[in-house]
Each structure stands twice: as C-alpha cells, then as structure tokens.
Amino acid sequence: MNGVHDLGGMHGLGRVDVEGNEPVFHNPWEKVVFGTMVATLGQGMYNLDEFRHGIEVMGPAHYLTSSYYEHWLETIEKNLIEKGVMDRDELDARTQEFLKDPDAPVAQREDPELADSLSQLVRAGASSRREVSVRPQFEVGDRVRTRNVHPRGHTRLPQYVRDKQGVVERVYDAFVLPDANAHGEGENPQYVYCVRFDAEEMWGDSAEPREVVYVDLWESYLEPL
C-alpha cells in the first residue's frame, strides 16, 4: 500500500536523533512487547508479513507520532484479535485494570519447554526461503524495469523505486512472497533479486554524484527490458 511507512525519498522529517549509549530497551514495556512478539510470531499465531502489514495500516499521523514499539504493540493487538486469540473487549478491559493499578503484577507462568524452543528459534532463525521447481527468470547483468503498480495491500516494492530501470546485481534464492502471505493467500515463493539502480534514475537532478542504490526485489516486481 502507498502508506506513510514507505519513507524512501520523503522530505521534511527532520534531524536524525542519535542517542548516545542507547539501551536495548528503554523501559520494561518495550521488553515485554519484544518478547511477546517473538513468542506469538514464533508459535505461528500470525506471520511476519501480517505483522508488518499491521503496522502499515496505522493512520499516517499515528504512525509518525508513536514510538517503534508502540507500532509493534498495535500490530500484535490487531493480529491476535483478527486470529481470534483474544477479543477487543477483554483486551480493553484488562488494559483498564492495569491503567487503574499500574503496579499490579502480571501473573507469572513458567513454561520451560516453550522458553527453550523460542530461545532455539532466536538462535536458529526461521527462514522464509523456499525450494521452487522453476528457474529464475532473470540472471546477473539483466536490465529490468520495476513495475508501475500500486497495490492496496502489503508489498515490499517501495514507491521510490517503481517504474525504474535497473540491473540485476545478484540472484538470490526463492522466498515467500510478502504480498500474498500477508493476506492469507499462501506463500507463493518467488526468486528475489538484488537490483542496482543509479541514483539519477530515481532522483534526477537531485541525485548525489557517485551513488547507487541496491534494492532486493521479488520476481513479480520486475519486468524484462
């Protein structure tokens, strides 16, 4: 979707705020949100593409005025509700309880087996690479053009690089297609290519000299030139 999350080339967003000696988590709730994400995604309650899309559908003003882990909280809530893991009413009621009594503890529950399997997941990862029986359509050195498409759903083809000419720099393996997987349409794995674009192709006279941008793109985002 042409959402506010798709930020490449936008102006006017201000200075980069670099925090010295930044902690991994700024407060306890960020740590809870992070761990909850790994635990719920890791158990397959939703997939990574649904997770990302849940952030993209936040209102633009909300997206820009909320913190990173608030984005995560939004999409975790949305996905768990959509998947029927919990409903909005019970979540709101429980939130009210903790608002009234912020220091109320969360009931502890130990599940060493789950803790171990999730730790294992963190160490081993969960690849979205898939075997496919077809050959890649493009090879290194091929000139390609990105499609001029504006899907309303999830996509990983950024706006700044649509309808642009580039050259295939690397051919990667096939990976789950986010555009399908975010919307319950299956994995539809496709080859991913690292495509090189000269800065002038995107930015014209505003391009900086001696700059190239590499973007990793799924096969269906590209057409031959």
């Binding site: 809870v32 809530e77 893991v85 429980r94 969360v106």
Partner: peptide, 14 residues
C-alpha cells in the same frame, strides 16, 4: 497507557 496495553496482552496470553 502503552505500558498497560503491553501488560494486558501479556497477562491474557499467560
């Protein structure tokens, strides 16, 4: 509010 929402999700899942 954010902190309460985070605890709410965690406690319901628990």
């Amino acid at each position: 509010e954010i902190a309460a929402r985070a605890k709410a999700i965690e406690s319901l899942l628990v």
